Simulated scan of single mutants.
Amino acid sequence: MPHLPHRNRNRTGDTAVTVGPLDLADRVDEALAVQAHAFGLSDDEIAVRRQIVLRHITFPGARALGATTGTGRLVGFVYGMPNDRAHWWSTVVEPYLRAGGQDHWLDDSFVITELHVHPGYQNRGIGRSLITTITDGAAEPRSILSAIDFESPARGLYRSLGYTDLARQVHFPSAPRPYAVMGAPLPLRRRSR
């Protein structure tokens, strides 16, 4: 996959951010530091997520992209894989999707498992570049993801790319807030110029 340059100025003065393939197993701690900063995770939550990420990245078709500065600092990442109804996430969301007649979205979909950008680098198109680049490489005709169910900048980004709500008020075990499951046909919608 080619590296796509994405230039912008951020608060730290580093001007170039490049989106490209990421060896997530090798850089898992850096990626989780970005997620922790963006999401406010505790050390215990990070330890649990580390094991999950390392397991996920071994699944068939799993891929990751990173956003790195010119100095090599990881400031954003995305990873995903072809959805499998046997995976934990699918087993949790399936009843919610089925209730709305939307469970067919679990088949032949590329799931965005995680997408995070360091807060100091947000609102610069990095998240958009990460998600469009990873889904452009998907063989599946559609994409699904889950996001905390409130009107956040992330949900606004997903909507701008063509994602729509498939189920809301989805409760994951041990998650303090409900989630929405969203889906979009691929390729994702681009901004009109």
Rank of each mutant, 00 (worst) to 15 (best):
E94T: 12
Y158G: 03
V17F: 03
R124H: 15
V92S: 02
G137P: 06
E30I: 12
E114V: 13
A64E: 09
N10W: 13
I126L: 06
I131H: 00
G20T: 14
L157A: 01
G125Y: 08
L115N: 02
T71D: 12
H56S: 07
I148W: 06
L41P: 01
L74G: 01
R177T: 13
S146F: 03
S160Q: 08
T133E: 07
P95C: 08
T113S: 03
G20K: 09
L166E: 04
P185V: 14
Q122T: 14
P176N: 04
P178G: 03
D103C: 02
E45Y: 02
H3K: 10
D107T: 14
L32W: 05
R73K: 12
V92M: 02
D14C: 04
W105C: 06
E30V: 13
H3A: 11
P178E: 08
L115V: 15
V111T: 10
A167T: 09
F39H: 05
S109E: 12
D136F: 04
G80W: 07
A16P: 01
F150C: 06
R168D: 14
A147V: 15
R177C: 08
L41M: 13
G125P: 11
G20C: 09
A139Y: 08
H6S: 05
V19E: 07
E151C: 00
F150P: 00
R50N: 07
A47K: 10
A25F: 04
V48L: 10
P21R: 07
G127M: 12
V34N: 00
T135W: 02
R73G: 03
I112Q: 02
M182G: 01
W88P: 01
V53H: 00
A38T: 11
D108F: 04
L157I: 14
L22H: 00
D14F: 06
N10D: 13
L41W: 13
D29A: 06
G125K: 13
P95T: 09
F77Y: 12
P173R: 05
T12D: 07
R193T: 15
